[in-house]
Write a protein that binds this DNA or RNA. Sequence first.
DNA 1: ACCAGCAGTCGAACCGGTTCGATGAGTGGA
DNA 2: TCCACTCATCGAACCGGTTCGACTGCTGGT
Lengths: 342, 342
Amino acid sequence: MNIGEIAKRAGVSRSTVSYALSGKRSVSEETRRKIQQVIDELGYRPNASARALANGRTSTIGLVFPPAGNHYTGMQLDFIGSVVEAAATYDYDVLLSPSGVDSDRSFQRLLAERRVDGAILMEIRLQDDRVDHLGEAGFPAVCIGRTAHSDGDWWVGLDHTALVEACVHHLADLGHRRIAFVNRPERLLHAGYESAHRGLDGFTKAAAERGLTVRTYCCGDDAPSGQVCLEQILHDDPATTALVTLNEAALGGLYRGLAVAGRHVPRDFSVTGVVAGRWAETVTPQLTAADVPAEQMGRLAVDLLVERLDHPDAAPRHHLLAPPISLRTSTGPAHTGSGSTA
Amino acid sequence: MNIGEIAKRAGVSRSTVSYALSGKRSVSEETRRKIQQVIDELGYRPNASARALANGRTSTIGLVFPPAGNHYTGMQLDFIGSVVEAAATYDYDVLLSPSGVDSDRSFQRLLAERRVDGAILMEIRLQDDRVDHLGEAGFPAVCIGRTAHSDGDWWVGLDHTALVEACVHHLADLGHRRIAFVNRPERLLHAGYESAHRGLDGFTKAAAERGLTVRTYCCGDDAPSGQVCLEQILHDDPATTALVTLNEAALGGLYRGLAVAGRHVPRDFSVTGVVAGRWAETVTPQLTAADVPAEQMGRLAVDLLVERLDHPDAAPRHHLLAPPISLRTSTGPAHTGSGSTA
DNA sequence: ACCAGCAGTCGAACCGGTTCGATGAGTGGA
DNA sequence: TCCACTCATCGAACCGGTTCGACTGCTGGT
């Protein structure tokens, strides 16, 4: 069923059908009814490819998300879900693009072949060639995260530096003096992942301010790595009494490591960090953490992108979020006197 | 940059460029080189909408996934990731469609507007109108899960009945006599979710075979609900010594409930179920479970769909998987004598 | 010497929409 | 009564590809 068929059955021209549907020119009430009746009978819907070809807009946005070879984190899932939902409210579809090892192939498909009107990028690196490319090409994109030079970009980000600082201060206020930082995997840190870098900066800075004894670790994005990492922490400094982490996926393993080492949370050891709220509540005891507002961020990213698509010449905008720490039950006062149990 | 521009600069006609690219007719080596050179210079890539319009194929598949209002489970994330990856290897893009409350709107967009060549459906219900619609329309679709009448369908599914039976037998073999079953939320059970129903069937059947005393529960898809559910279980029958669950998202809460009640896993209480392997390893102690091979299922679903797209008249095919139980550390022999601790 | 056959190329039609300019009928004002 | 203007509609062109049929040179067989 195409528009010509509808036109024929309604006894009008194709253009009249088009105008009846779009409302861009006036159509008599009688004709409109007749057309609508035929359309309802045949269940006609205009072909998306033809429409996209004709008016140059696909009504689709691309979501460039991290490669699957890695482990996904719950946070990423929340982003994807909220982006799709928000896009739907604007009548946009979402096309997924895994930005894997040869990110280029899929990336090129999306952009050069004009499959999407705009793109949302996840997992931003401080120096990110994807962002650079898009910027140079003037392609409408919004980042979830921000690069080192984000002035000209559109983005919605988290103030990881401030969040991790807040975590450190929270622990210092509780009397902890020897704290470990559990970062994302070394591979990602080297690749320049924004959260890993800014989080580390915040940790280092706050630790210096408070005169704490600290160690920093990279840890794989999975539970077993978390357990190994925790063993390493207690091996390097058995007097460690708290840790801050950005590594959501390793959280279960860190807890397991503590349990194996006989450290009770929060009595003997405090744990906090930056984690999506819903996932902070899946561990026992629930994690005191700066809750990543993943849903809100996804929605904001779509809002920005739609605004940018509607106003191609608008000045770059962004949202920097810094949610407060949610106090749950994984942190407590440091033991005074005996710091060592190993 | 369009094909006409390339043709002009290469001094040939548009059709020659097209044939040079597709290889569907012979083109002289010299012409081919000239065209390729111009294309490389200009970075030309054919417009996807135009191509889709011309040859009737969008090279895109739709992934109909559950509404985001609910909580996502890790399993769903793994599905999405593996589907996207597998699709990429066939040069297909993936369009996400939230099948929410008014699933119709987004669903219609995908199918009636011909945005996708085929679809993969997640979260299948025993009676599923989406599947019925697609079947009647002859639209190429593959289900992850199967309906009650799946004979004519293409699907890849999990034998939840057998898996849960295996869990029950495992516990019974360890001497457990009073076992609880923690299902997905009541809302989903009523909606007819396949896994919830078949899992429950398997549980009931195996429990009857082994003459066990059992209770079954529905539980919200989040940690707090899991904790509440566990309290209810111990309240209803303090002598319960084990549970089987399908509810991945509640797992953390169930563990927390046990910890609060002073039941040590696995010494006092055994936990098992059907859960994506990677997530079974995030809890402490790691869950003995039938690992849902989410990645494999996503890949198989794409394989089937591509096959169906390539051979429109092929007979329906499917894969029914029944992975073995992975023994980890959350189950152990039942206490003899004293079953009650409350 | 002539014709069949093939490689290489082109123009035109088509996919299914949107949009511009033109046309004709009807209306109101001078 | 005539003109200007609006409303409703139509035909044609266009978006950027693919594909079919036809045409032109060549080559090779008889």
